[in-house]
């Protein structure tokens, strides 16, 4: 995906620049942006190192584990049909916690493992493997709705570009992300009811006399 986007940016950009007569600016832009990227990374390095250092303490002190236990009832509400103690739940909670704490790099491995575990669960249920289960849809929609407590990178960018108060956006961003997550949950719960999980779906259909979709 990124290969195509990058090819488009470079090739499309140069073609467009030649056609609109901006050839001089092109070489300048290419060199300058490479330099800007380094300046930006220097600011980012400080913020990210600070954050990751704190999170290491949180991990060592058992705070992360405690949070995992804390969100268990919530995960049970989101995924009532995953049996207790199933590995999928553990991976999902690691992914959600990492997301909340803004540990971008730690989210993905746990998220991928969660998806694999959910695929195994579908196999155990005897459903076709290539179709997304309700749990997978819910997990992904919830994940994409983004639940970040402190948008660390954004704060770093803001301070790099001379914001008077880089942290000012934390509360509104939290509120906005809460809204998007609530919409995500409401949508998934509605779909769970309207399009019951595969196995339950057939039972429901016989019960409703083929009325249910």
């Amino acid at each position: 995906m990124l290969n195509m986007i990058w090819a488009f940016m470079i090739l499309g950009g140069i073609l467009c620049g030649v056609l609109t007569g901006h050839v001089e600016e092109l070489s300048c832009a290419a060199l300058e942006s490479a330099g800007d990227a380094i300046t930006l990374c220097i600011t980012m390095a400080g913020v990210v190192a600070l954050w990751m250092g704190l999170m290491e303490i949180a991990k060592e002190s058992g705070l992360v584990e405690r949070m995992t236990k804390g969100i268990a009832p919530f995960l049970h509400f989101l995924f009532p049909r995953i049996p207790k103690g199933h590995p999928a739940l553990e991976h999902i909670s690691t992914n959600v916690i990492a997301n909340i704490l803004g540990l971008g790099w730690a989210c993905t491995p746990a998220g991928l493992k969660a998806m694999e575990a959910l695929a195994d669960l579908e196999k155990e249920r005897g459903n076709p493997p290539q179709v997304a289960s309700n749990e997978m849809c819910t997990f992904l929609i919830f994940n994409i709705s983004s639940l970040q407590l402190v948008p660390v990178n954004m704060i770093a960018y803001r301070s790099q570009y001379g914001s008077a108060n880089p942290a000012r956006i934390i509360a509104p961003a939290l509120l906005a992300t809460l809204i998007s997550t609530l919409v995500a949950i409401a949508f998934c719960k509605w779909k769970d009811r309207k399009e019951p999980p595969m196995k339950g779906r057939m039972e429901d259909e016989t019960r409703a006399g083929g009325e249910a979709k």
Binding site: W6, S33, L40, C41
Partner: peptide, 30 residues
């Protein structure tokens, strides 16, 4: 943790250079 964090930033440096260059070219091209 902080040293892990630095490693992460070092790893994304090439990405940032590549993409900021792409955006820079696109912007300059009009």
């Amino acid at each position: 943790g902080a040293s892990d964090g630095l490693k992460i930033v070092v790893e994304i440096v090439p990405t940032l250079i590549g993409l900021m260059m792409g955006v820079g070219i696109l912007r300059a091209s009009g």
